[in-house]
Design a protein around this nucleic acid. Structure first.
Lengths: 207, 207
DNA sequence: TAAATTAGCTTACACATGTACTCTGAAACG
DNA sequence: CGTTTCAGAGTACATGTGTAAGCTAATTTA
Protein backbone atom coordinates (compact mmCIF):
# COMPACT_ATOMS: atom_id res chain seq x y z
CA UNK A 1 0.00 0.00 0.00
CA UNK A 2 1.31 3.41 -1.03
CA UNK A 3 2.21 6.15 1.39
CA UNK A 4 -0.89 8.02 0.36
CA UNK A 5 -3.39 5.22 0.95
CA UNK A 6 -1.69 4.49 4.24
CA UNK A 7 -2.15 8.04 5.49
CA UNK A 8 -5.76 8.02 4.33
CA UNK A 9 -6.46 4.84 6.25
CA UNK A 10 -4.86 6.38 9.31
CA UNK A 11 -7.12 9.41 9.16
CA UNK A 12 -10.17 7.25 8.61
CA UNK A 13 -9.25 5.27 11.69
CA UNK A 14 -8.82 8.53 13.60
CA UNK A 15 -12.37 9.50 12.64
CA UNK A 16 -13.84 6.20 13.77
CA UNK A 17 -11.87 6.29 17.00
CA UNK A 18 -12.84 9.89 17.63
CA UNK A 19 -16.49 8.97 17.28
CA UNK A 20 -16.13 5.97 19.59
CA UNK A 21 -14.31 8.07 22.15
CA UNK A 22 -17.03 10.67 22.27
CA UNK A 23 -19.65 8.09 23.17
CA UNK A 24 -20.59 7.85 26.83
CA UNK A 25 -23.54 7.30 29.10
CA UNK A 26 -24.70 10.82 28.37
CA UNK A 27 -23.70 11.04 24.72
CA UNK A 28 -25.24 8.90 21.99
CA UNK A 29 -23.99 8.59 18.44
CA UNK A 30 -26.94 10.47 17.02
CA UNK A 31 -26.07 13.44 19.20
CA UNK A 32 -22.57 13.72 17.73
CA UNK A 33 -22.05 16.30 15.03
CA UNK A 34 -19.84 15.92 12.02
CA UNK A 35 -17.84 18.92 13.16
CA UNK A 36 -17.26 17.53 16.62
CA UNK A 37 -15.96 14.26 15.27
CA UNK A 38 -13.71 16.00 12.77
CA UNK A 39 -12.38 18.29 15.49
CA UNK A 40 -11.61 15.36 17.78
CA UNK A 41 -9.90 13.56 14.92
CA UNK A 42 -7.81 16.64 14.17
CA UNK A 43 -9.00 17.38 10.65
CA UNK A 44 -11.05 20.13 9.05
CA UNK A 45 -14.82 19.56 9.01
CA UNK A 46 -14.96 19.49 5.24
CA UNK A 47 -12.24 16.86 5.05
CA UNK A 48 -14.63 14.46 6.70
CA UNK A 49 -16.25 13.94 3.32
CA UNK A 50 -13.08 12.45 1.90
CA UNK A 51 -13.82 9.39 4.05
CA UNK A 52 -17.56 9.15 4.62
CA UNK A 53 -20.56 10.37 2.71
CA UNK A 54 -22.14 11.55 5.97
CA UNK A 55 -22.39 10.72 9.67
CA UNK A 56 -24.74 7.89 8.88
CA UNK A 57 -22.09 6.08 6.95
CA UNK A 58 -19.62 6.51 9.79
CA UNK A 59 -22.19 5.08 12.20
CA UNK A 60 -22.82 2.01 10.09
CA UNK A 61 -19.09 1.39 9.95
CA UNK A 62 -19.04 1.51 13.73
CA UNK A 63 -21.93 -0.94 13.99
CA UNK A 64 -20.03 -3.29 11.70
CA UNK A 65 -17.05 -3.13 14.02
CA UNK A 66 -19.45 -3.92 16.84
CA UNK A 67 -20.51 -7.06 14.99
CA UNK A 68 -16.88 -8.06 14.77
CA UNK A 69 -16.48 -7.68 18.53
CA UNK A 70 -19.59 -9.78 19.04
CA UNK A 71 -18.19 -12.59 16.95
CA UNK A 72 -14.86 -12.51 18.72
CA UNK A 73 -16.77 -12.72 21.96
CA UNK A 74 -18.67 -15.80 20.82
CA UNK A 75 -15.45 -17.49 19.84
CA UNK A 76 -13.90 -16.74 23.19
CA UNK A 77 -16.99 -18.05 24.98
CA UNK A 78 -16.98 -21.30 23.01
CA UNK A 79 -13.33 -21.86 23.73
CA UNK A 80 -13.83 -21.43 27.44
CA UNK A 81 -16.92 -23.62 27.42
CA UNK A 82 -14.93 -26.46 25.87
CA UNK A 83 -12.81 -26.57 29.00
CA UNK A 84 -15.93 -27.50 30.96
CA UNK A 85 -18.03 -25.81 33.61
CA UNK A 86 -21.40 -24.09 33.58
CA UNK A 87 -22.03 -22.85 30.07
CA UNK A 88 -24.36 -20.15 31.37
CA UNK A 89 -21.90 -18.85 33.92
CA UNK A 90 -19.07 -18.87 31.43
CA UNK A 91 -21.15 -17.03 28.85
CA UNK A 92 -22.24 -14.34 31.24
CA UNK A 93 -18.73 -13.80 32.54
CA UNK A 94 -17.34 -13.62 29.05
CA UNK A 95 -20.01 -11.18 28.00
CA UNK A 96 -19.41 -8.89 30.96
CA UNK A 97 -15.68 -9.05 30.46
CA UNK A 98 -15.76 -8.19 26.78
CA UNK A 99 -18.30 -5.46 27.43
CA UNK A 100 -16.13 -3.97 30.12
CA UNK A 101 -13.17 -3.62 27.81
CA UNK A 102 -15.22 -2.27 24.88
CA UNK A 103 -17.94 -0.22 26.54
CA UNK A 104 -18.47 2.14 23.65
CA UNK A 105 -18.77 -0.63 21.12
CA UNK A 106 -21.65 -1.97 23.17
CA UNK A 107 -23.06 1.45 23.69
CA UNK A 108 -23.63 2.00 19.99
CA UNK A 109 -25.07 -1.49 19.54
CA UNK A 110 -27.40 -1.32 22.51
CA UNK A 111 -28.50 2.23 21.90
CA UNK A 112 -28.98 2.17 18.15
CA UNK A 113 -30.83 -1.10 18.43
CA UNK A 114 -33.79 0.95 19.57
CA UNK A 115 -32.70 4.12 17.83
CA UNK A 116 -34.45 6.25 15.26
CA UNK A 117 -32.61 5.23 12.14
CA UNK A 118 -34.11 2.26 10.35
CA UNK A 119 -30.78 1.48 8.71
CA UNK A 120 -29.05 1.38 12.09
CA UNK A 121 -31.70 -0.77 13.67
CA UNK A 122 -31.52 -3.21 10.79
CA UNK A 123 -27.73 -3.37 10.96
CA UNK A 124 -27.71 -4.06 14.69
CA UNK A 125 -30.52 -6.57 14.39
CA UNK A 126 -28.56 -8.41 11.75
CA UNK A 127 -25.60 -8.79 14.07
CA UNK A 128 -27.79 -9.95 16.94
CA UNK A 129 -29.55 -12.42 14.67
CA UNK A 130 -26.16 -14.05 14.06
CA UNK A 131 -25.82 -14.41 17.75
CA UNK A 132 -29.23 -15.98 18.17
CA UNK A 133 -28.96 -18.52 15.38
CA UNK A 134 -25.50 -19.53 16.49
CA UNK A 135 -26.75 -20.05 20.02
CA UNK A 136 -29.83 -21.95 18.83
CA UNK A 137 -27.64 -24.24 16.79
CA UNK A 138 -25.40 -24.86 19.77
CA UNK A 139 -28.33 -25.71 22.06
CA UNK A 140 -29.87 -27.95 19.44
CA UNK A 141 -26.66 -29.92 19.20
CA UNK A 142 -25.47 -30.03 22.78
CA UNK A 143 -28.76 -30.22 24.69
CA UNK A 144 -30.54 -32.19 21.98
CA UNK A 145 -33.23 -29.55 21.92
CA UNK A 146 -36.05 -29.50 19.39
CA UNK A 147 -35.29 -26.84 16.74
CA UNK A 148 -38.33 -24.68 17.48
CA UNK A 149 -37.67 -24.69 21.20
CA UNK A 150 -33.97 -24.13 20.69
CA UNK A 151 -34.73 -21.08 18.61
CA UNK A 152 -37.15 -19.64 21.15
CA UNK A 153 -34.78 -20.39 23.98
CA UNK A 154 -31.94 -18.63 22.18
CA UNK A 155 -34.13 -15.61 21.52
CA UNK A 156 -35.08 -15.30 25.16
CA UNK A 157 -31.52 -15.79 26.35
CA UNK A 158 -30.09 -13.20 24.01
CA UNK A 159 -32.78 -10.70 24.92
CA UNK A 160 -32.02 -11.12 28.59
CA UNK A 161 -28.28 -10.92 28.10
CA UNK A 162 -28.34 -7.79 25.97
CA UNK A 163 -30.80 -6.11 28.24
CA UNK A 164 -28.65 -6.81 31.25
CA UNK A 165 -25.71 -5.52 29.25
CA UNK A 166 -27.44 -2.21 28.68
CA UNK A 167 -28.04 -1.84 32.39
CA UNK A 168 -24.56 -2.97 33.34
CA UNK A 169 -22.80 -0.42 31.17
CA UNK A 170 -23.39 2.40 33.60
CA UNK A 171 -22.85 0.51 36.85
CA UNK A 172 -19.81 0.34 39.03
CA UNK A 173 -18.03 -2.96 39.27
CA UNK A 174 -19.65 -4.27 42.44
CA UNK A 175 -23.20 -3.63 41.21
CA UNK A 176 -22.26 -5.20 37.94
CA UNK A 177 -21.25 -8.36 39.72
CA UNK A 178 -24.65 -8.51 41.36
CA UNK A 179 -26.40 -7.89 38.07
CA UNK A 180 -24.42 -10.74 36.52
CA UNK A 181 -25.62 -13.12 39.22
CA UNK A 182 -29.17 -11.98 38.66
CA UNK A 183 -28.76 -12.56 34.94
CA UNK A 184 -27.43 -16.06 35.54
CA UNK A 185 -30.57 -16.90 37.49
CA UNK A 186 -32.77 -15.53 34.71
CA UNK A 187 -30.93 -17.59 32.14
CA UNK A 188 -31.20 -20.72 34.26
CA UNK A 189 -34.92 -20.20 34.47
CA UNK A 190 -35.17 -20.05 30.70
CA UNK A 191 -32.92 -23.05 30.17
CA UNK A 192 -34.73 -25.12 32.78
CA UNK A 193 -38.09 -24.09 31.37
CA UNK A 194 -37.08 -25.03 27.85
CA UNK A 195 -35.94 -28.43 29.09
CA UNK A 196 -39.22 -29.00 30.94
CA UNK A 197 -41.32 -27.90 27.99
CA UNK A 198 -39.43 -30.26 25.75
CA UNK A 199 -40.06 -33.22 28.07
CA UNK A 200 -43.74 -32.36 28.20
CA UNK A 201 -43.77 -32.21 24.42
CA UNK A 202 -42.06 -35.58 24.07
CA UNK A 203 -44.49 -37.19 26.48
CA UNK A 204 -47.40 -35.97 24.42
CA UNK A 205 -45.84 -37.27 21.22
CA UNK A 206 -45.13 -40.63 22.81
CA UNK A 207 -48.63 -41.22 24.14
CA UNK B 1 -60.75 27.29 38.35
CA UNK B 2 -60.54 30.75 36.81
CA UNK B 3 -60.68 31.44 33.11
CA UNK B 4 -57.05 32.26 33.19
CA UNK B 5 -55.81 29.04 34.80
CA UNK B 6 -58.07 27.09 32.49
CA UNK B 7 -56.50 28.60 29.40
CA UNK B 8 -53.04 28.01 30.80
CA UNK B 9 -53.80 24.34 31.40
CA UNK B 10 -55.10 24.07 27.86
CA UNK B 11 -51.88 25.43 26.41
CA UNK B 12 -49.80 23.19 28.63
CA UNK B 13 -51.79 20.22 27.35
CA UNK B 14 -51.24 21.45 23.79
CA UNK B 15 -47.48 21.41 24.40
CA UNK B 16 -47.49 17.88 25.81
CA UNK B 17 -49.71 16.65 23.00
CA UNK B 18 -47.58 18.39 20.40
CA UNK B 19 -44.51 16.65 21.76
CA UNK B 20 -46.23 13.25 21.80
CA UNK B 21 -47.50 13.76 18.27
CA UNK B 22 -44.05 14.48 16.93
CA UNK B 23 -42.71 11.18 18.21
CA UNK B 24 -42.43 8.39 15.68
CA UNK B 25 -40.20 5.51 14.68
CA UNK B 26 -37.73 7.98 13.19
CA UNK B 27 -38.08 10.77 15.74
CA UNK B 28 -37.11 10.46 19.38
CA UNK B 29 -37.90 12.92 22.12
CA UNK B 30 -34.30 14.03 22.43
CA UNK B 31 -34.31 15.02 18.77
CA UNK B 32 -37.23 17.40 19.25
CA UNK B 33 -36.40 21.06 19.62
CA UNK B 34 -38.17 23.49 21.88
CA UNK B 35 -39.08 25.59 18.86
CA UNK B 36 -40.58 22.66 16.99
CA UNK B 37 -42.80 21.74 19.90
CA UNK B 38 -43.89 25.33 20.42
CA UNK B 39 -44.63 25.67 16.71
CA UNK B 40 -46.74 22.52 16.69
CA UNK B 41 -48.59 23.70 19.78
CA UNK B 42 -49.28 27.03 18.13
CA UNK B 43 -47.45 29.31 20.54
CA UNK B 44 -44.35 31.48 20.32
CA UNK B 45 -41.06 29.74 21.21
CA UNK B 46 -40.47 32.02 24.16
CA UNK B 47 -43.90 31.32 25.61
CA UNK B 48 -42.80 27.74 26.16
CA UNK B 49 -41.04 28.90 29.30
CA UNK B 50 -44.32 29.91 30.90
CA UNK B 51 -45.04 26.18 31.26
CA UNK B 52 -41.76 24.29 31.49
CA UNK B 53 -38.28 25.23 32.61
CA UNK B 54 -36.86 23.44 29.59
CA UNK B 55 -37.42 20.47 27.30
CA UNK B 56 -36.17 18.15 29.98
CA UNK B 57 -39.02 19.06 32.26
CA UNK B 58 -41.51 18.48 29.47
CA UNK B 59 -39.99 15.07 28.86
CA UNK B 60 -40.24 14.04 32.49
CA UNK B 61 -43.88 15.06 32.46
CA UNK B 62 -44.40 12.79 29.49
CA UNK B 63 -42.66 9.89 31.22
CA UNK B 64 -44.96 10.39 34.19
CA UNK B 65 -47.95 10.13 31.92
CA UNK B 66 -46.41 6.96 30.58
CA UNK B 67 -46.33 5.56 34.09
CA UNK B 68 -49.99 6.31 34.40
CA UNK B 69 -50.73 4.39 31.22
CA UNK B 70 -48.70 1.49 32.57
CA UNK B 71 -50.71 1.35 35.76
CA UNK B 72 -54.00 1.51 33.89
CA UNK B 73 -52.75 -1.37 31.78
CA UNK B 74 -51.97 -3.45 34.85
CA UNK B 75 -55.41 -2.85 36.24
CA UNK B 76 -57.01 -3.87 32.97
CA UNK B 77 -54.87 -7.01 32.85
CA UNK B 78 -55.77 -8.02 36.38
CA UNK B 79 -59.46 -7.54 35.70
CA UNK B 80 -59.32 -9.75 32.66
CA UNK B 81 -57.27 -12.37 34.46
CA UNK B 82 -59.90 -12.65 37.16
CA UNK B 83 -62.33 -13.91 34.56
CA UNK B 84 -60.04 -16.90 34.07
CA UNK B 85 -57.85 -18.16 31.22
CA UNK B 86 -54.12 -18.20 30.63
CA UNK B 87 -52.61 -15.36 32.62
CA UNK B 88 -49.67 -15.15 30.26
CA UNK B 89 -51.82 -14.97 27.16
CA UNK B 90 -54.10 -12.38 28.70
CA UNK B 91 -51.19 -10.25 29.82
CA UNK B 92 -49.51 -10.29 26.43
CA UNK B 93 -52.72 -9.46 24.61
CA UNK B 94 -53.49 -6.63 27.00
CA UNK B 95 -50.00 -5.27 26.62
CA UNK B 96 -50.12 -5.34 22.84
CA UNK B 97 -53.53 -3.77 22.81
CA UNK B 98 -52.67 -0.89 25.11
CA UNK B 99 -49.45 -0.32 23.25
CA UNK B 100 -51.24 -0.21 19.95
CA UNK B 101 -53.55 2.55 21.11
CA UNK B 102 -50.79 4.59 22.79
CA UNK B 103 -47.76 3.96 20.60
CA UNK B 104 -46.02 7.22 21.41
CA UNK B 105 -46.41 6.79 25.13
CA UNK B 106 -44.51 3.53 24.79
CA UNK B 107 -42.03 5.05 22.43
CA UNK B 108 -40.82 7.54 25.00
CA UNK B 109 -40.70 4.89 27.74
CA UNK B 110 -38.89 2.32 25.67
CA UNK B 111 -36.50 4.74 24.06
CA UNK B 112 -35.58 6.88 27.02
CA UNK B 113 -35.10 3.78 29.11
CA UNK B 114 -31.78 3.39 27.34
CA UNK B 115 -31.39 7.07 26.54
CA UNK B 116 -28.66 9.50 27.41
CA UNK B 117 -30.31 11.42 30.21
CA UNK B 118 -29.77 9.95 33.65
CA UNK B 119 -32.90 11.65 34.96
CA UNK B 120 -34.99 10.10 32.20
CA UNK B 121 -33.54 6.66 32.68
CA UNK B 122 -34.20 6.85 36.40
CA UNK B 123 -37.78 8.01 35.86
CA UNK B 124 -38.55 5.20 33.44
CA UNK B 125 -36.82 2.64 35.60
CA UNK B 126 -38.93 3.72 38.52
CA UNK B 127 -42.12 3.07 36.57
CA UNK B 128 -40.90 -0.31 35.41
CA UNK B 129 -39.85 -1.22 38.93
CA UNK B 130 -43.50 -0.75 39.97
CA UNK B 131 -44.43 -3.19 37.32
CA UNK B 132 -41.90 -5.76 38.44
CA UNK B 133 -42.72 -5.68 42.14
CA UNK B 134 -46.42 -5.84 41.45
CA UNK B 135 -45.92 -8.85 39.23
CA UNK B 136 -43.62 -10.52 41.74
CA UNK B 137 -46.18 -10.05 44.46
CA UNK B 138 -48.86 -11.53 42.25
CA UNK B 139 -46.77 -14.61 41.44
CA UNK B 140 -45.81 -15.08 45.05
CA UNK B 141 -49.44 -15.13 46.06
CA UNK B 142 -51.08 -17.01 43.20
CA UNK B 143 -48.37 -19.51 42.29
CA UNK B 144 -47.05 -19.84 45.82
CA UNK B 145 -43.58 -18.95 44.59
CA UNK B 146 -40.63 -18.37 46.89
CA UNK B 147 -40.03 -14.58 47.14
CA UNK B 148 -36.55 -14.63 45.63
CA UNK B 149 -37.65 -16.74 42.69
CA UNK B 150 -40.80 -14.68 42.26
CA UNK B 151 -38.74 -11.55 42.02
CA UNK B 152 -36.32 -13.02 39.50
CA UNK B 153 -39.16 -14.45 37.48
CA UNK B 154 -40.90 -11.09 37.38
CA UNK B 155 -37.70 -9.37 36.27
CA UNK B 156 -37.21 -11.79 33.43
CA UNK B 157 -40.83 -11.59 32.34
CA UNK B 158 -40.88 -7.81 32.31
CA UNK B 159 -37.62 -7.62 30.41
CA UNK B 160 -38.97 -9.94 27.76
CA UNK B 161 -42.29 -8.14 27.50
CA UNK B 162 -40.82 -4.67 27.18
CA UNK B 163 -38.25 -5.83 24.72
CA UNK B 164 -40.88 -7.41 22.56
CA UNK B 165 -42.86 -4.21 22.89
CA UNK B 166 -40.00 -2.18 21.50
CA UNK B 167 -39.79 -4.47 18.49
CA UNK B 168 -43.54 -4.58 18.01
CA UNK B 169 -43.95 -0.83 17.82
CA UNK B 170 -42.69 -0.63 14.27
CA UNK B 171 -44.30 -3.76 12.91
CA UNK B 172 -47.46 -4.16 10.90
CA UNK B 173 -50.34 -5.94 12.53
CA UNK B 174 -49.73 -9.41 11.15
CA UNK B 175 -46.08 -9.48 12.18
CA UNK B 176 -47.08 -8.17 15.57
CA UNK B 177 -49.39 -11.11 16.03
CA UNK B 178 -46.52 -13.46 15.34
CA UNK B 179 -44.26 -11.61 17.71
CA UNK B 180 -46.91 -11.89 20.41
CA UNK B 181 -47.02 -15.66 19.99
CA UNK B 182 -43.24 -15.79 20.20
CA UNK B 183 -43.35 -13.73 23.35
CA UNK B 184 -45.91 -16.05 24.92
CA UNK B 185 -43.59 -18.97 24.36
CA UNK B 186 -40.69 -17.08 25.93
CA UNK B 187 -42.78 -16.23 28.95
CA UNK B 188 -43.95 -19.83 29.32
CA UNK B 189 -40.36 -20.94 29.33
CA UNK B 190 -39.57 -18.58 32.17
CA UNK B 191 -42.66 -19.51 34.16
CA UNK B 192 -42.08 -23.22 33.68
CA UNK B 193 -38.43 -22.83 34.56
CA UNK B 194 -39.23 -20.93 37.73
CA UNK B 195 -41.68 -23.64 38.75
CA UNK B 196 -39.11 -26.37 38.11
CA UNK B 197 -36.37 -24.53 39.98
CA UNK B 198 -38.67 -24.08 42.93
CA UNK B 199 -39.46 -27.79 43.08
CA UNK B 200 -35.78 -28.60 42.91
CA UNK B 201 -35.18 -26.17 45.74
CA UNK B 202 -37.91 -27.65 47.89
CA UNK B 203 -36.58 -31.16 47.37
CA UNK B 204 -33.17 -30.09 48.59
CA UNK B 205 -34.62 -28.42 51.63
CA UNK B 206 -36.70 -31.49 52.39
CA UNK B 207 -33.81 -34.00 52.26
C1' DT C 1 10.22 14.31 -15.59
C1' DA C 2 5.67 16.18 -16.77
C1' DA C 3 0.84 15.51 -15.92
C1' DA C 4 -2.86 13.91 -13.17
C1' DT C 5 -4.86 12.80 -8.82
C1' DT C 6 -6.32 13.76 -4.31
C1' DA C 7 -6.28 14.42 1.11
C1' DG C 8 -6.81 18.14 3.60
C1' DC C 9 -7.35 23.23 4.29
C1' DT C 10 -9.66 27.86 4.14
C1' DT C 11 -13.39 30.64 3.35
C1' DA C 12 -18.15 31.37 3.01
C1' DC C 13 -23.13 30.94 3.51
C1' DA C 14 -27.72 29.86 4.81
C1' DC C 15 -30.10 28.02 8.44
C1' DA C 16 -31.85 26.40 13.08
C1' DT C 17 -31.35 26.64 17.77
C1' DG C 18 -31.97 28.37 22.92
C1' DT C 19 -33.01 32.19 25.41
C1' DA C 20 -32.68 37.27 27.25
C1' DC C 21 -35.37 41.37 27.12
C1' DT C 22 -39.38 44.03 26.50
C1' DC C 23 -44.15 44.93 25.59
C1' DT C 24 -49.30 44.19 25.76
C1' DG C 25 -53.84 43.12 26.81
C1' DA C 26 -56.84 40.76 29.55
C1' DA C 27 -57.96 38.47 33.86
C1' DA C 28 -57.71 38.64 39.01
C1' DC C 29 -57.70 41.12 43.03
C1' DG C 30 -58.58 44.54 46.75
C1' DC D 1 -62.89 50.98 39.83
C1' DG D 2 -57.94 51.18 40.01
C1' DT D 3 -53.95 48.20 40.53
C1' DT D 4 -51.43 44.08 40.00
C1' DT D 5 -50.41 39.81 37.77
C1' DC D 6 -49.07 37.16 34.00
C1' DA D 7 -49.72 34.24 29.46
C1' DG D 8 -48.26 35.08 25.26
C1' DA D 9 -45.96 37.76 21.41
C1' DG D 10 -42.10 40.14 19.12
C1' DT D 11 -37.39 41.26 18.48
C1' DA D 12 -32.69 40.25 18.79
C1' DC D 13 -28.36 37.85 19.32
C1' DA D 14 -24.73 34.59 19.91
C1' DT D 15 -23.66 30.02 18.73
C1' DG D 16 -23.45 25.66 16.29
C1' DT D 17 -24.60 23.24 12.24
C1' DG D 18 -23.94 20.91 7.29
C1' DT D 19 -21.81 21.62 3.18
C1' DA D 20 -20.51 24.09 -1.41
C1' DA D 21 -16.40 26.03 -3.89
C1' DG D 22 -11.88 26.52 -4.72
C1' DC D 23 -6.86 26.10 -3.51
C1' DT D 24 -2.45 23.68 -2.34
C1' DA D 25 1.07 20.57 -1.89
C1' DA D 26 2.46 16.09 -2.18
C1' DT D 27 1.95 11.47 -4.06
C1' DT D 28 1.07 8.60 -8.02
C1' DT D 29 1.08 7.57 -12.70
C1' DA D 30 2.51 7.41 -17.48
Amino acid sequence: MGVRAQQKEKTRRALVDAAFNQLSAERSFSSLSLREVAREAGIAPTSFYRHFKDMNELGLTMVDEGGLTLRQMMRKGRQRAEAGGSVIRISVDTFMEVMESNPNVFRILLHERSGTSAAFRAAVEREIEHFISELAHYTEAHANRHPVLARAQAEALVTLVFNAGASALDLKRSDRKQLADQLVLHLRMVATGAEALQQKMEQKMGS
